[in-house]
Write a protein that binds this DNA or RNA. Structure first.
Length: 515
DNA sequence: GGACGGTGAAACTTCAGGTTGCCTC
DNA sequence: GAAGTTTCACCGTCC
């Protein structure tokens, strides 16, 4: 099928987008970076003159997704006001939902996005326009997999909305056009490969198989993996057996499992009868669903901490330096000195051995320090806008990092409980609440109230209402002025009935017990 | 003559995304 | 590898 598109601009994306708009249809445009998705949305929005009340309201919602708008919120709102949006992991979840909902309603006509929108969403796009088929990787710019290309094309003309759809790939040169036709249109999708033999993945599976008593001997363990897709695909169980041996050794050394039978774990045939049992600690690690290596890292750091000075940076850096927090914030060239200076100030609080500058892992270590510094600012009540300017982390990414830090702090507190590290548990629980709310210590008691988060708690505190008894003593009229009628009444009820503290960890974390 | 501002070329920098625990309304 | 951003030299204008 041939379609001709008017070329009003030298930018093919803009031409196709306006052609789509003229047909009164909607489109998703895929880019390989967040920046280019945002820029394209802005370029398109600038060319649209019309104003629409509904869109203006929507733009204001997008702008107000955070207590203080970031420059990203401002850009997003300006685009949305013209019916154009960008969509990537950096948006807050509220903004993402607004964009998706309004695209579905037809209020938003065009979304410029990264591959976030390629998976799982059913949207009424007539066209999927693919601007970039190459993406930066460690080997430079590489072509995206055919499977991903097909996934993106599948976004156009969803059966629930349209009877047909178009996928348009943009080529910069003739050679690129040939390549696209050959690789993506006439080519075959890649084989799917099992990633089971990768150590971190296997580590978690081996421990959980043993912890759940699903496999209790080496023979059972190997039989289990013999039945997996990995074994089916590679027809070679030897490689996986070697990795399993290594992992069993580690899990044993870290005291997550106990072996009995043979002392040595050499090859499959000799020691088939070796039996495994998880320790209490190993069972908990498996239940917490964290990488055993992470658990070991945390446990060794906490062990090290006895007798040492400990502060929030200690714990934040310890957790930032785990696989679960990846990808970490990258230390840019210009930030190098700043991060190192800050590290020097906090050196005594480090729980792990600092790698030498000349070791390859030093960069990742510095990244973990930068990530910890970002969390440190967050628990000292810096807002998303500040974090975006200082650490170049977008609100959406901030949120996802906070959620993961929250989960890992929970896991850490559970491990400490099991190991009877009483002196750190309370600190960790307090820190977890501070991370969750983004608050300093002094607001901890106020955020225990429902409807009170970092902003309202700070407002109360500034007005000399510093804890629950102050809330109790405060005039309702004063609270109403500060919090609005509904929340003021609810807060009063909560202190009156005294049944606010239902959450178990909050119960444990009662201020009195902390000191 | 010097401060200031505009311009454009060159140098520099950076680059997608996601699941898990547990709890409560 | 490409696009966006920063830096810097150069030039013209104004006081």
């Amino acid at each position: 099928m041939k379609t001709s598109i008017k070329e009003d601009s030298d930018n093919p994306v803009i031409n196709i987008v306006f052609d789509t708009l003229n047909k009164n249809k909607q489109a998703l445009v895929f880019f390989n970076t967040k920046k280019s998705a945002e820029k394209a949305a802005e370029d398109i929005a600038k060319r649209i003159k019309k104003d629409d009340m509904a869109l203006k309201e929507l733009a204001s919602d997008v702008l107000k997704a955070l207590p203080r708008p970031t420059r990203q919120c401002e850009r997003a709102a300006l685009c949305v006001a013209k019916g154009i949006a960008f969509h990537h992991s950096g948006l807050t979840s509220r903004q993402r939902n607004l964009v998706e909902e309004n695209f579905r309603k037809g209020t938003i006509k065009i979304i410029c996005c990264t591959p976030t929108l390629a998976y799982g969403l059913d949207l009424p796009a007539y066209r999927a326009i693919i601007k970039d088929l190459r993406r930066f990787s460690q080997r430079g710019l590489t072509w995206i997999p055919v499977l991903e290309y097909l996934q993106i094309c599948g976004r156009a003309g969803r059966p629930s909305y349209d009877s047909e759809g178009q996928a348009i790939a943009i080529a910069a040169t003739n050679a690129e056009k040939e390549k696209i036709i050959e690789k993506y249109i006439n080519g075959e999708p890649e084989e799917i490969y099992s990633k089971l033999a990768v150590e971190p993945v296997l580590r978690m599976h081996v421990l959980s198989l043993i912890a759940s008593d699903f496999t209790t001997t080496k023979k059972q363990l190997i039989d289990f993996f013999r039945g997996t897709f990995y074994a089916h695909q590679f027809k070679d169980i030897r490689r996986i057996t070697t990795t399993i041996s290594k992992i069993i050794g580690m899990l044993d050394e870290w005291e997550f499992i106990i072996r009995s039978g043979n002392d040595e774990f050499q090859s499959a045939d000799e020691t088939d009868d070796e039996k495994y049992k998880s320790t209490l600690l190993g069972k908990r690690v498996a239940e917490l669903y964290i990488d055993p290596l992470t658990a070991y890292h945390i446990i060794s750091c906490i062990k090290e901490s006895s007798g040492k000075k400990l502060n929030e940076f200690s714990v934040l850096q310890m957790i930032s330096h785990t696989d679960e927090l990846r990808p970490l914030l990258k230390v840019g060239i210009k930030e190098h000195d700043y991060v190192q200076e800050e590290l020097l100030k906090r050196h005594q609080f480090l729980l792990e051995q600092e790698p030498s500058m000349y070791e390859p892992e030093y960069d990742e270590f510095l990244n973990s320090v930068k990530t910890a510094l970002m969390f440190d600012e967050w628990v000292n009540e810096k807002d998303e806008d500040f974090l975006l300017e200082k650490f170049n982390i977008t609100p959406g990414e901030t949120r996802s990092k906070i959620d993961r830090m929250d989960w890992m702090l929970y896991a850490t507190s559970e491990l400490c409980k099991l190991l009877h590290y009483q002196y750190v548990i309370k600190e960790i629980i307090r820190l977890r609440l501070r991370v969750r709310y983004g608050i300093k210590e002094e607001l901890l008691s106020l955020v225990r109230l429902q409807g009170i988060g970092r902003v309202r708690a700070r407002m109360l505190f500034r007005n000399k209402i510093k804890d629950l008894s102050d809330v109790k003593n405060a005039e309702l009229s004063v609270l109403k002025q500060l919090l609005g009628e509904k929340i003021a009444v609810s807060v009063k009820n909560q202190v009156g009935q005294g049944d606010v503290l239902q959450e178990k960890e909050l119960e444990n974390a009662k201020l009195g017990e902390w000191e």
